[in-house]
């Protein structure tokens, strides 16, 4: 039996829910894995675990400590979802000053946050599952790979590739701000296949050509501000430099 734990840092806990969304497959998984720690689904939780799945990103000093403890008490650490893998939505705080951000609280803010960073900023991470929430197929791929002692690797291509494989009509042609060309594949182009442009929830991939994407969008008549917003939404942390460059244009 391989023991696993699903841990939450600052996030919407959507990835924990996605774990439960495995439904029938979860029962299969439980034949090989023993869930030792899962706050959303279990009352009694313990450490250490063989594989720790961490969702969210630390935004307080306590959470950083929690993350370090999880790392110490696990053999394999998996960044579950975009927040953990790239900083994701919490990373948006970094676009403004802390004081400005804290104004969302009516009275005194509960605490001053630390900068949201991807978790591999603090600790070494073995695997990353991108997506908001992550893709169930990819999780199953990872789980199978661990049992069979095979390697697991993330796609190094864009959502466009998977979208083209499904022979969809291109949303860029329709004038939509689609993040497909710079977003990592693995979701089987779920949104574009259903007529909604890609928001880039899986974050950028290694070979992405941002300048070409921006040029294409601008040629379509999309404003710089709209592009900055789209780029910042899920990937402010990894795309900081690109966004800074875009602001200068």
């Amino acid at each position: 039996m391989i023991s696993i734990g699903i841990f939450s840092l600052s996030c919407c806990e959507g990835c924990s829910v996605q774990f439960l969304n495995l439904e029938g497959k979860l029962l299969e998984v439980l034949k090989y894995y023993n869930i030792e720690n899962f706050r959303l689904a279990k009352e009694l939780n313990s450490l250490p675990v063989d594989i720790a799945f961490v969702e969210g990103t630390p935004t307080t000093a306590e959470e950083v400590k929690k993350l370090l403890k999880i790392r110490r008490d696990s053999n394999v650490l998996v960044a579950l979802g975009t927040c953990a893998a790239t900083g994701g939505v919490p990373g948006l705080v970094n676009t403004m000053s802390k004081r400005e951000a804290m104004k969302v609280y009516d009275s005194n803010p509960p605490y001053m946050p630390v900068d949201p960073k991807p978790i591999d900023y603090y600790v070494p991470v073995e695997h990353k599952l991108y997506g908001c929430p992550f893709s169930k197929d990819e999780l199953m791929e990872l789980i199978t790979a661990v049992i069979m002692n095979k390697s697991f690797k993330n796609r190094e291509s864009s959502v466009c590739v998977e979208c083209a494989l499904r022979e969809n009509a291109c949303l860029l042609d329709k004038g939509e701000l689609c993040m497909g060309p710079v977003t990592r594949a693995g979701c089987r182009a779920l949104c574009p296949s259903n007529g909604a442009p890609c928001r880039g929830c899986r974050g950028p991939y290694e070979d992405a050509n941002y300048k070409a994407h921006i040029r294409t969008l601008m040629d379509m008549g999309i404003t710089r501000e709209e592009i900055i917003e789209a780029y910042s939404m899920f990937s402010y942390e990894p795309l900081k430099e690109v966004i800074a460059w875009l602001k200068e244009q």
């Binding site: 291509s157 466009c160 291109c170 497909g180 060309p181 070979d207 300048k211 040029r215």
Partner: peptide, 13 residues
Amino acid sequence: AEICLACGKCNFI
């Protein structure tokens, strides 16, 4: 290469 998005659409089509 500066403008190519490497999306592979030209190959698939």
